[in-house]
Amino acid sequence: MTEHIDRVRTYALVFAVLIALTVLTTAVAFVDLGPFSVVVALAIAVGKMLLVALFFMHIRHSTRLTRLVVLGGLLWLIILILLSLTDFATRTWVGVPGR
């Protein structure tokens, strides 16, 4: 594996974007976007996560195996949440109390 050493400039730029996104997400929270405020907040959070993971955690230089591990972890988190929601989201469909 060849070592990639990023420039300080790159890190500083990523850092600046992260701060800007933090300010943005805080400001947007005070605007009434209806159901989209969650979407926007989470989209910004995901964007920040990607920046930290790709640049600060060097995923953009990492091996395929490392990427597979990360994607696997995220996929399992989605499994946990989605399959649990098959229960919580459909509880009221039957219309029988307790069912």
């Binding site: 399992w76 499994i79 399959l83 098959t86 229960d87 919580f88 989201a89 459909t90 509880r91 469909w93 039957v94 307790g98 069912r99």
Partner: peptide
């Protein structure tokens, strides 16, 4: 093995639809 855990909850208040899926 990670997609089936809800079959332990068939007689809880788990939704019937979730029961079908699991």
């Amino acid at each position: 093995g990670f997609l089936v855990w809800g079959h332990h909850l068939f007689v809880s208040t788990q939704s019937l639809y979730a029961g079908l899926v699991f």
